[in-house]
Write a protein that binds this DNA or RNA. Structure first.
Lengths: 243, 243
DNA sequence: TATGCGAATTGATGAATGTTAAAACACAGC
DNA sequence: GCTGTGTTTTAACATTCATCAATTCGCATA
């Protein structure tokens, strides 16, 4: 199969792609695989021979705590269009694992093909590189949020970011999106207990900022939510710039 | 000037460099600049035309909070051998700024030269890419620490990491190192108040884990410090692997 | 030696978050 | 319709961390 159009859109939001760049992207051969909730998509440890990008649903990077079996910390969420583990292409092995949040579909790309691209398509290479550096910028923003926001603002920041990322590739609109996460999983992402996540959700509801039924989140007051989250999408690099 | 040997060591710790790779690295032209404590090394916003690497001292990525002037969050620390803002090479502009922690010296490299490398040295390009991806792995580890450790363990984690990174390029040994940071600055890094940092420092001292006089930190009990920090250096990718 | 200033330290109190327990709710299978 | 299971929600209490205030320390310099 060919790569998902989501990833092409991800790049086109950020730079002008030449005809040959697009042709090379579309020529990438991929293998489509579906995953059940909680299934491991990329195992930790060993050096991989392929990387994957999200097609449908979400996935997360999860770290296990050596001395506290059963506990985990989630350090990243991935949505359609994300090239999830390009990291594995340049690292010796991941110190964490990528798991499916809810049911998901993923496309795998062989490293051999990526290596060929790094040898013959310097501009595309810089764009792949860019996508890993944007992931790092997202990590930094999560660090800022963790250090400077209280729980409801912190949760609001996550919701603003997820909606913005989904909308940027056309996977959400009108301030409504599907969030395939339990409160327990939000707790693992934001570093709180599930009980406290529940309090934060209630605060946002009581403030008429969101409506949240089942997996459907509806943002009622974007400006208000962004304000308490101190959300500024600049770090997502959504501007079309020559790179 | 030529690039610092620290950066060559940074790469050689992690991969075998060919003769031509090393020759190309050593041929990179750099401009050495010294900075006073707190001085801005890389401003935020505009697209830069050069990137820098640490030669002496430390620098930090600092984010300002829009609605709280004077406050900042630090999301990364850089030590000798770090290629600090390769990010700026593939991003449209930084959403934060890089400042000097204490006095420091930095070497600037023109982006034109990096671009030439990405066109003719694919292996070196992957290694540069790798260094930005290791920065991302460090961000993730900071997220794990923030989410799962209490203040003294969190501080211990930072000390373990800084020592390991300094020692890996030969800038520290025997569990002693210089930390050019005030407690106020540690507070901005770890997301606590300076008062709370002080209590965390006292806890580590009382536990006979460290001695800390002025800017000199001496780790008295590495195993104990690493245990409460849950520190495992795997994420720093210090193994020599074919990449 | 005396003075001043920024940093480190300590104390007291309040707010945010964690912990434990239990109740309410949703939904699948019987 | 009933039961069982997992998630969400609420409540009561404990711990961690923030805030405000003051004191001590280190060090430069008058």
């Amino acid at each position: 199969m060919a790569i998902t159009e989501y990833f092409v859109r991800y790049l086109q939001r950020r730079d002008q792609l030449s005809e040959s760049d697009i042709a090379r992207l579309r020529a990438i051969k991929t293998t489509l695989v579906g995953f059940q909730p909680g299934e491991v998509i990329v195992p930790r440890g060993r050096m991989a021979s392929r990387s994957c990008m999200m097609l449908r649903g979400m996935s997360a990077r999860q770290h296990h705590l050596a001395d506290r079996p059963g506990e985990r910390v989630i350090t990243a969420l991935h949505v359609p269009g994300d090239f999830v583990d390009l990291h594995g292409f340049v690292l010796a092995g991941l110190e964490h694992e990528v798991v499916s949040m809810g049911a998901s579909e993923v496309e795998f790309v062989e490293h051999d093909e990526l290596r060929e691209i790094t040898q013959n398509f310097p501009h595309l290479t810089r764009l792949l590189w860019m996508s890993t550096v944007i992931d790092a910028a997202i990590h930094r923003q999560w660090l800022v949020a963790a250090a400077s926001l209280r729980s409801s603002g912190h949760l609001a920041h996550l919701l603003c970011e997820i909606y913005t990322r989904l909308a940027s590739v056309g996977a959400a609109q009108n301030y409504v999106f599907t969030l395939p996460l339990l409160q327990k999983e939000l707790a693992d992402i934001l570093g709180y207990t599930p009980i406290h996540i529940n309090r934060a959700v209630r605060d946002l509801r009581d403030g008429r900022l969101i409506r949240w039924t089942g997996q459907e989140v509806r943002i009622l007051d974007w400006a208000g939510l962004a304000r308490i989250a101190r959300f500024d999408p600049q770090y997502l690099e959504l501007d079309k710039v020559k790179r």
